[in-house]
């Protein structure tokens, strides 16, 4: 019960407290519109993937390949936009995301391989492909597409994603099934739910989100390089956990976890940098916050239990 309440209120409360704290400490510098835009732009990618990752985390899964996937999608996006156009690029990155979701989900669930291993393997494969493809020259995006980098467009995309995912999660059986699988996959299967199919579906939805994020990331970066997308999956993982998502999934999973957590991380990073901290320390700070959050929110059994 106590863990439940902590999980529900702490992330949002934490976000507000931290933001206000930095506002006070930095003398209001974090409230300037350019800083707020900066926070939004940085957190956009993590928020988008965090929202789309809800189904995966709800069923207790994890996707460690999305860094490489983002890189590949950035590559596909820039090549398509240079040669064909925006809409085909969008379609192609979405397709790539779908295929990637089928790969990681299908191989893990039907091949009985732990999903974090499949994820890591795919990560390396994607990274390898990306490195080869970008080894010849830096590929850059044509200027006419810079409108895509505006916070207005991205806000629309984000709201649309949250609306769609939120609806599917709360008002269709998909959300219930994913949480049930996370709570007890065996019992759920015995209730007649095709747990394997729904597990793969979760990764496909995440893949689509990552694909779209990749297109926007590419425009923001101006192109693609061999390191594109690095550590993306870790940022998303930390974000959802900070946002209150239980690692084993189940009934307490919520769509808002990705949103709140992403903002929280970025606000913290942004705040420290504003106060003059060495940007190199930021990783260390992230790590400490992560483990502290898990410590407080993870369900830990005290002592022994007799049935």
């Amino acid at each position: 019960m106590k863990t439940e309440k902590v999980r529900n209120f702490l992330p949002l409360a934490g976000l507000l407290i931290v933001f206000i704290a930095f506002a006070v400490l930095s003398g209001g510098r974090n409230l300037t519109s350019s800083n707020l835009q900066s926070i939004f732009n940085q957190s956009f990618f993590i928020m988008l993937a965090g929202i789309c990752a809800t189904f995966v985390y709800a069923h207790g899964g994890i996707d460690l390949s999305i860094g490489g996937l983002e890189g590949i999608c950035m590559l596909i996006a820039v090549v398509s936009m240079r040669n064909i156009g925006f809409v085909p690029a969008l379609i192609l990155v979405i397709l790539t995301g779908i295929v990637s979701g089928i790969l990681i989900g299908g191989i893990s669930v039907y091949g009985n391989i732990p999903v974090f291993i499949t994820g890591l393997s795919l990560q390396y494969i994607y990274r390898g492909i990306l490195k080869v493809a970008t080894s010849k020259a830096l590929i850059t995006v044509p200027n006419q597409y810079t409108w895509l980098d505006s916070w207005g467009v991205k806000a629309v995309v984000l709201v649309a994603a949250a609306a769609v995912v939120g609806y599917l999660f709360k008002y269709t059986k998909i959300g219930r099934y994913e949480k049930a699988i996370g709570g007890n996959a065996t019992a759920t299967t015995l209730c007649g739910v095709n747990a394997k199919k729904y597990s793969v579906l979760a990764y496909v939805i995440l893949g689509i989100g990552v694909g779209i994020a990749g297109l926007f990331a590419m425009v923001r970066a101006g192109g693609v390089n061999p390191q594109a997308g690095a550590a993306y999956e870790m940022d998303v993982l930390i974000a959802v956990v900070l946002g209150g998502m239980p690692l084993t999934g189940g009934a307490a999973a919520r769509v808002r976890c990705g949103i709140i957590g992403a903002l929280l991380i970025v606000v913290i990073e942004n705040g420290f940098v504003l106060l003059g901290a060495d940007p190199n320390l930021v990783d260390g700070i992230k790590g400490i916050i992560f483990i502290a959050t898990v410590f407080v929110t993870i369900a830990r059994r005290k002592g022994q239990v007799v049935n």
């Binding site: 059986k173 709570g183 007890n184 065996t186 019992a187 759920t188 007649g192 009934a251």
Partner: peptide, 24 residues
């Protein structure tokens, strides 16, 4: 406990699960 119930979920989540197809 292992095969018939999702212990961490509510009574509603457990009871309604096989019927969600029909209810939707």
């Amino acid at each position: 406990d292992i095969e018939s119930l999702i212990l961490s979920s509510s009574i509603t989540s457990n009871v309604a699960l096989p019927s969600l197809n029909k209810l939707q």
